[in-house]
Design a binder for these strands. Structure first.
Lengths: 150, 150
DNA sequence: CTGCATCCCGCCAGATACTG
DNA sequence: CAGTATCTGGCGGGATGCAG
């Protein structure tokens, strides 16, 4: 995913590899730094991961509890996302070798640092979901609806 | 077909089953119905959208400036993402009918509410990208290479 | 400068079935 | 309960070329 191609005439093979060679240090350094962290951002900001992280940040949660909390997620996706989060050190997976298997997931300290921001995001999403829906409808209407459209 | 939107709809990180708006989205609509918030979350948290929103929240930005700021993004993706953000009412696109076309993008008030949280996310990503990389390497080492070394 | 169109590949994600 | 395996399809997204 970290491929880059900004029309640099460097002729870097589009294949993978090709590390960043252009260094633009300016007032927007924050944004420019995204390249290395886009990957991390992408992981955290994935559709379900935000909800998952919020859930596991509130204490140990069992697999089934998560499945119920995240309405609409498939078991496969839940498993996959949890694995990825675990791999990135954001979630700790604890297996209790009991008869009915019991597995608990919990956020690591590092992940808990995000709790506040994540909560802010979700609450924002709730507050503005109507506005967004309206804006979309309006946009679609003006872009495609008019008499001569298309 | 000369619609403004080519194919993407963003709103989806990567995959996420992207909520396609074009025409048929019934298959995925059910998820949004049960949990509308997830839908909005998905739109905002797409791979590049966080970085884009941060950038446009700092003032009017021209297309090329964004392209340079978001190291690694392709022109296509930038255009597509900007269109979607505009459609969702998060970004305002202003075209100046000058000879060399000039277009500026700016975040709407609604989008600016996210600035703080988004910045928190990106700064977190910067601060912990190494930890994440390390955790990942460690995980991969114990999970995929148990036979070698050690 | 800004943006659209097209080809194409790979990953994400859903559905379904099987296991400890 | 808690996954794993597999098939399939769609979207994300890169590369390239053309246009206003």
């Amino acid at each position: 995913m970290s491929r880059r191609n900004t029309e640099v005439t460097v002729g870097a093979p589009q294949g993978v590899g090709a590390l960043q060679d252009t260094v633009e240090a300016s007032a927007r350094a924050r944004v420019e730094e995204t390249c290395p962290m886009v990957e991390v951002l992408g992981r955290v900001s994935a559709k379900w991961n935000i909800s998952i992280l919020v859930a596991v940040s509130e204490g140990p949660v069992r697999f089934t509890e998560l499945e119920r909390a995240l309405v609409g997620i498939s078991r496969r996706m839940l498993t996959l996302n949890l694995r990825n989060l675990e791999r990135d050190g954001l979630v700790v997976r604890t297996v209790y070798p009991t008869v009915p298997p019991k597995v608990e997931y919990e956020a690591t300290p590092m992940a808990r640092e995000l709790y506040g921001s994540l909560l802010a995001l979700t609450s924002w999403a709730e507050r503005h979901r109507e506005d967004v829906t309206l804006a979309r409808a309006r946009y679609d209407a003006t872009a495609e609806a008019p008499s001569a459209a298309r």
